[in-house]
Every structure is written in structure tokens, then in C-alpha cells.
Design a binder for these strands. Structure first.
Length: 336
DNA sequence: CGTTTTTGACCGGCGC
DNA sequence: GCGCCGGTCAAAAACG
């Protein structure tokens, strides 16, 4: 019996400017696109007084031409990059440009698979592309019939030939430190590595993982660096977990991480496997029922106390914070 | 000492 | 039938 080819398309998580957002994306696992509400807890950057804001505004006006040109060049560069990505997506998906609302930056990058060099590899890739196209057709049909496919963009349903068994295949990618040689992708599940192989398409090895949480769980995961960008890990999931995510059970939709830009609270707003989008505090009465429910949960005393607990825990475990606290206490102590 | 990772061998599908 | 290739197995090594 022929195994279904693991053709995966990839969600580009974008530049990893907020590690907390990326973590949240990975906690989402297969088929989930969490939306993060990042609340910055600035330790050293407390909100400036109003008059200071005005001063800063004046300073901004006084920005030199050189600085303005640098910024303009950066904006142009990013725009150009976005345009190129959009073109590639259009080519791949027959003009169906990635829609927003995927959670992260909401864009899908083209597969990072390199062009096959040999005729054999070309044919194989053609087969895989055909399957991807079938998936896109299915997606487009679903949209025509009124369904939303946004959350499903991270899933690729492949029908096994000659049987009715359907194996869910999805791909995600994550930007990592290029010097990081481990092929470990944290997604909330426990994985056991059972093999590693160097494939023809890609000089970097591909690691094979099985779900280690439940022995009967059929899910497999392949992780490999992108051939085009070694700082991107491409993970391909095959199958569906037959158990809840171990790190999610009984968990509040909130986590805290401390990164270079300061402590960040990340709120995962996922309901029934679909992501809901929150733009800062604009979750108003016009929000969908799911969102209202999430907002109610956020406003509940239980959530708040848990949040405070998590914040305290994150802050006290941050050496920068404890160092700053110690320094502040020392300053308050009288000199003897 | 139990668990996890590594790695070479093996297997099956596919194309020539 | 042969060779290539991706995926899996399983013994050995590493790790906590």
C-alpha cells in the first residue's frame, strides 16, 4: 500500500519580532492560528508623563532628513518584500492571495522547497504540486460554499489512494537562530525522535518525530531547515492527535514570556479550533459571541488572579527584574 | 538504570 | 531487475 506523500504547504510566521507571538503560534499546534494580545509590562520604560510625550513628539518633528530617508528606505524594502511574497503566493495558489486573519502576520509564504535538480525529482515534485493544487481547489470550493477556510489554511487533507482513510497533513515554519543546530520545535506536544535523514532536496538533515504523549497517537512530525533560509525550521505534521494537548489541559489562554523587549503577556484567543482576532482593547460589543466569551473570561476574577500569579512568577524569574529590584532596594537603604 | 537520541541498516515504492 | 530515495527500525550511545 502506498503511503500518502507528505506534501505540506507552509505558513510563514514572519519575522520573529515577538518570540511570545511565535510561542503562542506553536502552542496552537496543528490547524490553530492563535491571535496574541501582547501586553507589554515595561520595567524600565514606564509610561511617560503627558508633557514628556509632547516633548517626544516635538523631537520627532525635528527628525533629521537622513533619519527620515533611512526609515523611508526600510519601509520601501519591507514593501518590496511583501510584494514579492504576494506574487509568489499568487503564482502558487492561482491568484488566491493569502487572506488576513491567520493569527500571526497572516500571510502564507510559498513552499520553501528548492527546485528539483533531476528529472525524477521534478516528476515527484510535480505530483506533490498537483496534490497541493487539489487541496487549494478544495479550499476554494469550501469558500464558495460559504465556509471560511482561514483557520484551515494550516491543514492539508490528503486522501490515501485506494482507501477512505484521510490523513491530515499540515506544515508550519518557524524562524530560529541559524546557529541553533537542534531540530526541536516546541508546539505543546511531547515528541520522540525516531530517525534523522539527509534528503536529496535539502542539505540539512530531516528529523522524524512521533507523538510521545500517547503510544496510540498516530501523529508524526518531520522537521527540517528550509533549503532557502536556514534560519527557518519547516515542520510537517501528519495525522491528528487522538488526545488533548498536554500543555493545554486546564490552562488559561494566557502565557508570559520575557524577551529582550521586556516581559510580554500573550493571550491565546482560540475557541473551537478557530482563531478570533482582537485588536488591542477594541473587543467591543460588536465582537462575535466567541470573542465575547473570551472577553468575559479575561474579565473574570479567576483569570485576573491567575494572571497576576503568572506575571509575578514571570517577573521574579527574570534576572533583569530581580537585579533591578535589588538595585532599587539598595538605593532606598540608608548608607552606613 | 531507565529514558531519549543517534545513526547505520533495512524496507518498500517508484522510475528507468 | 536495478538503483534511487524517503521513511522506519533497532542497537548502541548518551544523558539525567
Amino acid at each position: 500500500m502506498r503511503r500518502p506523500p507528505a506534501t505540506a504547504y507552509i505558513i510563514n510566521a514572519g519575522r520573529q519580532e515577538s518570540s511570545s507571538s511565535m510561542d503562542a503560534a506553536w502552542r496552537g499546534g496543528v490547524g490553530c492560528s492563535p491571535v496574541c494580545l501582547d501586553l507589554r509590562v515595561g520595567l524600565e520604560q514606564s509610561p511617560p508623563p503627558r508633557h514628556e510625550l509632547l516633548d517626544r513628539s516635538a523631537a520627532a518633528k525635528a527628525m533629521t532628513d537622513a533619519e527620515a530617508k533611512i526609515l523611508e528606505a526600510k519601509v520601501r524594502q519591507v514593501s518590496e518584500e511583501n510584494r514579492r511574497l504576494a506574487e509568489m503566493i499568487a503564482r502558487l495558489y492561482g491568484g488566491d492571495i493569502a487572506r488576513p486573519g491567520l493569527g500571526l502576520e497572516g500571510s502564507i509564504s510559498p513552499p520553501t522547497q528548492p527546485r528539483p535538480a533531476s528529472p525524477l525529482a521534478r516528476k515527484k515534485r510535480a505530483r506533490e504540486n498537483e496534490e497541493t493544487a487539489n487541496f487549494c481547489d478544495a479550499n476554494s470550493n469550501r469558500q464558495k460554499s460559504g465556509g471560511t477556510a482561514d483557520a484551515d489554511h494550516a491543514e492539508n487533507l490528503v486522501t490515501n489512494e485506494g482507501s477512505c482513510r484521510r490523513i491530515k497533513i499540515s506544515g508550519v515554519c518557524r524562524r530560529i537562530d541559524p546557529s541553533d543546530t537542534s531540530l526541536v520545535v516546541k508546539d505543546g506536544y511531547q515528541w520522540r525522535k525516531y530517525g534523522q535523514k539527509v534528503t536529496r532536496d535539502n542539505p540539512s538533515p530531516r528529523a522524524y518525530f512521533r507523538c510521545a504523549f500517547a503510544p496510540s497517537c498516530p501523529v508524526k512530525k518531520k522537521v527540517q531547515r528550509s533549503a532557502e533560509d536556514s534560519s527557518v525550521l519547516v515542520a510537517t505534521y501528519e495525522g491528528e492527535h487522538n488526545h488533548p494537548c498536554p500543555s493545554r489541559a486546564g490552562e488559561l489562554p494566557c502565557s508570559i514570556s520575557v524577551n529582550s523587549s521586556g516581559p510580554t503577556i500573550t493571550l491565546d484567543l482560540i475557541k473551537n479550533g478557530r482563531a478570533v482576532q482582537v485588536v488591542e482593547a477594541e473587543a467591543t460589543a460588536a465582537a462575535p459571541p466567541d470573542l465575547k466569551e473570551v472577553c468575559r473570561q479575561v474579565a473574570s476574577p479567576g483569570f485576573r488572579s491567575a494572571l497576576v500569579e503568572q506575571m509575578a512568577s514571570a517577573l521574579t524569574s527574570d534576572p533583569k527584574f530581580t537585579g533591578a529590584l535589588a538595585a532599587a532596594i539598595l538605593r532606598k537603604l540608608p548608607d552606613y
